[in-house]
Design a protein around this nucleic acid. Structure first.
Lengths: 152, 152
DNA sequence: CTCTTAACCCACTAAAACAGTCAAGTATTT
DNA sequence: AAATACTTGACTGTTTTAGTGGGTTAAGAG
């Protein structure tokens, strides 16, 4: 899981789509002006989003893109991994040349954290974000996670 | 919060330091061979880690780096933001040119998620990762977070 | 039928970030 | 004094980002 501005753009665009898509498809031009992302860049991103079945396209006048599934079924991690197409080639993972046990241990620790991040982003859907309109009470969530992590 | 291989390298190196630092400082050369990260790249990373007071350096023979605080006080987010020096210049944030309410809303939604990611990574310390040796029961954590997010 | 709209597709590019190299220094210990 | 090892900075090749430009295809409106 890689987290860069590219993923941010994709998530922002998908949120725009989710918010404005209740009356038919939304054109990239609209998203471009609203979110201040260049049209051509959006085309690149939506090409990947379409290939990953996150959006469907409608051609012609009045056309545009629509979210292909229920908003609650589109996770943030889906969007990010769609545009990042991460092969996740961890150079050491499960290779036989990993004889030094110390190295594997450190790698495992990091991998474990990566899984947690992945799982976290999988647990947040577009619907979740819209329902709340704004993330509240973060400290409560934090404390809860802290406990979970400590006792896991 | 940006999450790339650079941050991964930094976290891995800090974990190595935490695991091997119980008997005095650890040289970058050791970390380089154990973790298969180029020495020069480590130098760059540790320069930033030192400037952010995450590690202290000891010069001379037998010297190296040590974690500067208690392991439980070093969060993963500290390490990542130290090497990424993210200025986080969100082009729109709180500017007066943000007249279109739709745009701000989308940005706010994304910002909210960013905060959650940040908080999540802040809640995991080096000590946490070492205590567990391996992240277990991720699904339990996931379910818990899911509930938290939904009801936040 | 034709014109417009908007997706689709491709090649290309400037700038930044990433990952690593090299070399000349400085501080500390033996 | 010499060896060790951190410090600093300049430099390089590659990949990713973000954006341009041009053309093609599908669908609707007149």
């Amino acid at each position: 899981m890689k987290l860069t501005t590219k993923g941010r753009y994709a998530v922002t665009a998908m949120l725009d789509l989710a918010l404005h898509g209740d009356q038919g498809p939304v054109s990239l031009a609209e998203i471009s002006t609203r979110q201040e992302i260049s049209l051509s860049y959006l085309e690149q991103l939506f090409s990947k989003l379409r290939k990953n079945d996150l959006v469907t396209s409608t051609r012609g006048p009045g056309g545009g893109y629509s979210v292909s599934r229920e908003l609650s079924l589109v996770a943030v991690s889906d969007i990010i991994s769609a545009v990042n197409e991460s092969v996740d080639a961890t150079q050491c993972a499960g290779r036989e040349n990993c004889h030094s046990h110390g190295r594997c241990l450190t790698h495992d620790l990091w991998e474990g954290l990566s899984v947690q991040i992945e799982e976290f982003l999988s647990s947040v859907s577009l619907q979740d974000m819209i329902d709340k309109q704004r993330v509240q009470n973060v400290s409560v969530v934090r404390e809860s996670m802290l406990v979970q992590v400590r006792h896991a």
